Computed example of a mutant assay.
Amino acid sequence: MPNYQVNATQLTPNTTVHIKGKLTYSRLAKLVEGTDLARVDQQRIQNGMQPIGRPHTSVNLAEAEVQFLDPANPTKEEIFVQERRFASAKHPEHGQSYSMDNKSTNLPIVAVQNAAGEAEQIVLEGDLAAGLEVTLVLRVYKPKGFPNCGLSLDLVLLHEQPRYYNAGVNTGELAARGIIFATPPVKVSGADAAAAAPAAAYAAAGLPANTDAATGLPAPAPAVAAVVATPPVMQPAPVAAAPVAQPQETLEQEVARLRAESAARNAASAASGGESAFGSPWEAPKEPAAQGIAYSG
């Protein structure tokens, strides 16, 4: 057990400590929780460490050095952090290392230092790559019901442009050779590449996306089942009733019918006190009486 000069009960809440180094590992873009938390706690138990047991963020530094506000008069908080650096048996090349598990439910603020030396806050696109030079700003806080003070990770200041961890590409090594990705590279499976390649090649060549890979010609459109229209049932047109043939009148029958019609009209006219509008077609028209002087003889 190390013999520390300063213990956690001696710290003053709301004081801060700055420690600078190079990232060897970080989980700062999102909380370690759920299945990730269970896996991390299991690894800690296997390594003889206490499980964290709650969502958190983590960061590890190599070449870690506390940035004393006044090197001639370090604060108790600065000494507390300085004493808790350690030498990694697995990676002695890291020099003095420092590890921090931040149990706050809030993600730490991440900022990048611009050319003017000012800090500009950024939102991480993923976990940061190893090798980045950063400064951690730690704040002392006093938990309720506990005698010891704790440390909270409030800020991660990047002294260079962010690079992101990628399991398949060593972006740190590439950056050292001047190759810096604008966005983190993402692995693509062979199946996805095979599916995407023909469409991309045809698009580049100005061919339709449904081009047949074997022939280079547009693939036939899917067959559409022909719909046979059922002809409408034709209803028979209504047949006009044939006119009933009237029997041919004889001359005597026709004369008798006309005489009867005339007599009926005259009777109706007499009953109404006037003359029939129609005279008998069989009577000669009556001429009007002559007007003027009549001569005899």
Rank of each mutant, 00 (worst) to 15 (best):
Q5E: 14
Q5C: 10
V6A: 08
T9H: 08
T9I: 10
T15C: 01
G21W: 00
T24R: 05
L28K: 05
K30T: 09
V32G: 02
D36V: 04
D36C: 05
A38G: 08
D41C: 01
R44V: 06
R44W: 02
Q46V: 09
I52R: 01
G53I: 00
R54W: 04
P55M: 02
P55D: 05
H56N: 08
T57W: 01
T57Y: 00
E65T: 13
E65C: 10
E65Q: 15
Q67M: 09
Q67D: 06
P74F: 03
K76R: 13
K76M: 11
I79S: 02
F80Q: 02
F80H: 07
V81G: 00
Q82T: 03
E83V: 03
R84S: 09
S88F: 05
A89L: 14
Q96G: 02
Q96H: 11
S97Y: 04
Y98R: 04
N102C: 10
S104Y: 02
I109A: 13
V112A: 10
A116E: 15
E120K: 13
D127Y: 04
L128E: 00
A129D: 12
A129R: 06
A130D: 08
G131E: 04
L132M: 14
V134T: 02
V134N: 03
L136V: 04
V137N: 06
V137R: 06
R139N: 11
Y141D: 03
K142N: 07
K142V: 02
K144I: 15
F146M: 13
N148T: 11
G150A: 07
L151Y: 00
L155K: 15
V156W: 01
V156T: 05
L158Q: 00
Q161C: 06
P162R: 09
Y164M: 07
Y165M: 06
G172N: 13
E173M: 12
A175Q: 06
I179W: 07
S189F: 02
S189Y: 03
A197N: 07
A199N: 05
A199W: 00
A201Q: 12
A203H: 09
A203V: 05
N210C: 07
T215D: 04
G216I: 10
P218W: 09
P218C: 05
A221V: 12
A221F: 06
A225E: 15
A226W: 05
A226N: 12
A226M: 11
V227F: 07
V228C: 01
T230K: 14
P232W: 00
Q235C: 08
Q235L: 14
P236T: 05
P236G: 06
A237S: 13
A241Y: 04
A241W: 02
V244Q: 10
P247C: 03
E249R: 15
E252R: 13
V255N: 10
A256E: 14
R257F: 09
L258W: 09
E261N: 11
A263I: 08
A263Q: 12
A264Q: 13
A268F: 03
A271E: 13
A271K: 14
S272L: 15
S276N: 12
A277N: 08
P281G: 09
W282G: 08
A284P: 07
A284N: 09
A290R: 12
Q291G: 08
Y295I: 12
Y295K: 06
